[in-house]
Simulated assay, not measured.
Amino acid sequence: MEVILKEDVNKLGHRGDVVKVAAGYGRNYLLPGKLAIEATPANKAVIEQMKGSAIRKSAKEKAQAEELSATMAQVELEFERKVGENDHLFGSVTSGDIAQQLEAKGFNIDRRKISLEEPLKQLGEFHVPIKLYRDVTTHVKVTIKSDAPEETAAA
């Protein structure tokens, strides 16, 4: 079955692409989810017009993402967590935690765009990648500190 994608679909294609998919995948997922339309001759003519507007929209979104990327590169986040032996955290810092702190600083970023392979479980500084757009990725500096007061060496 041939369909025209109305939105970007992971591992399938981008908005405006004409792709062949299994009939069940198209009928049960793409079409009801409004992610695609059937590739009829009439729809193909309409999609040509949509491609022009999609290119303009894509360029605008990319420019906004690059602007946001430049702003976010300066952002530093700090977390205080309880620490056990060997500076190992009792909890962890997840992409949800990072998204929450970014929102508090005025950046509305979906936690799924934060590319943490696994939660942060050590003290220290980390540079966490955030995918803002297809080709635009920025890094945010995340510092994890102990919530215990610094122990000074008493002589």
Rank of each mutant, 00 (worst) to 15 (best):
I4R: 06
I4Q: 02
I4A: 06
L5R: 03
D8H: 10
D8W: 04
V9N: 00
V9E: 05
L12Y: 02
L12W: 06
G13Q: 07
G13E: 06
H14A: 10
R15H: 10
R15W: 00
R15V: 12
R15Y: 05
G16F: 07
V18H: 05
V19Q: 00
A22D: 12
A23E: 14
Y25V: 03
G26S: 05
R27Y: 09
Y29Q: 05
L30V: 01
L31T: 03
P32T: 07
P32M: 03
G33R: 15
L35W: 05
L35N: 07
A36I: 03
T40H: 08
A42W: 01
N43S: 11
N43G: 02
V46W: 11
G52N: 12
S53A: 09
A54T: 10
I55F: 09
I55E: 14
R56N: 14
K57I: 04
A59G: 04
K62L: 10
A65G: 07
L68I: 08
L68R: 10
S69F: 04
S69C: 11
M72I: 10
V75G: 03
V75C: 05
L77H: 08
G84P: 05
E85C: 08
H88F: 04
F90L: 10
G96E: 12
G96N: 13
G96D: 11
D97N: 10
L102P: 03
E103F: 11
E103H: 14
K105G: 06
F107T: 02
N108R: 14
N108H: 14
N108M: 13
D110Q: 05
R112N: 12
E117Q: 14
P119D: 04
K121S: 09
Q122R: 15
L123F: 07
G124C: 07
E125H: 12
H127Y: 13
P129R: 02
D135Y: 08
T137G: 02
V140S: 04
V140E: 02
K141Q: 11
K141V: 07
V142P: 00
V142T: 03
T143F: 09
T143Q: 13
